[in-house]
């Protein structure tokens, strides 16, 4: 099938097999930040934005993305560096394999909530698994980042 989308700000047209999920298409198009940690939409590693909303690309049929705007961490490098710096300052990236999907969802959360509470943060991100950190360092990074962004305003 023929697929048209806007990938990370650039128009893209490509042939792809009809049973493909968005994740595999993105990795084929060199968006290697998009990772697969399971095949059952449990881990959140494959999170990308479709029309600015976070979705799990492992269970998102490619055809659904037709005509839409898809954003991966490759397209948000400035934001990734900014928030990622707070992660790095906590040592909370550890193996880093879950970081891209997690950061995509954090950036989506920041778009939706002005000043999220701890409970809102934990609930919003509950689908993003991490086996290394025990999550506390990620929470510290998010809170420091939110305070930093709040002070910027």
């Amino acid at each position: 099938m023929r697929i048209k989308m806007n990938l990370n700000g650039k128009p893209l047209e490509s042939d792809a097999s009809a049973d493909m999920v968005l994740l595999d298409f993105l990795r084929e198009h060199e968006c290697y930040s998009v990772k697969r940690g399971c095949e059952t939409s449990n881990c959140g590693l494959c999170t990308v934005l479709v029309d600015d909303k976070p979705i799990l690309s492992c269970s998102y049929p490619l055809a659904r993305a037709n005509g839409k705007s898809v954003t991966t961490l490759e397209g948000l490098q400035d934001e990734a560096k900014e928030f990622g710096g707070f992660m790095a300052d906590e040592g909370a990236e550890q193996c880093g394999f879950c970081s891209p999907g997690f950061i995509m969802n954090v950036l989506a959360m920041v778009n939706e909530f002005e000043n999220p509470t701890d409970s809102e943060i934990l609930n919003f991100l509950s689908g993003n698994m991490c086996r290394c950190t025990g999550y506390e360092g990620q929470l510290r990074a998010i809170k420091k980042y939110l305070a930093f962004k709040g002070a910027e305003k």
Binding site: Y32, L73, G84, M87, A88, D89, E93, P100
Partner: peptide, 20 residues
Amino acid sequence: SVRKKDAMALVTGQPVYTDD
């Protein structure tokens, strides 16, 4: 508590793992 040397590569999603 210095940053890990690979931290920024990891948090910006660089292709550094086996399958990448």
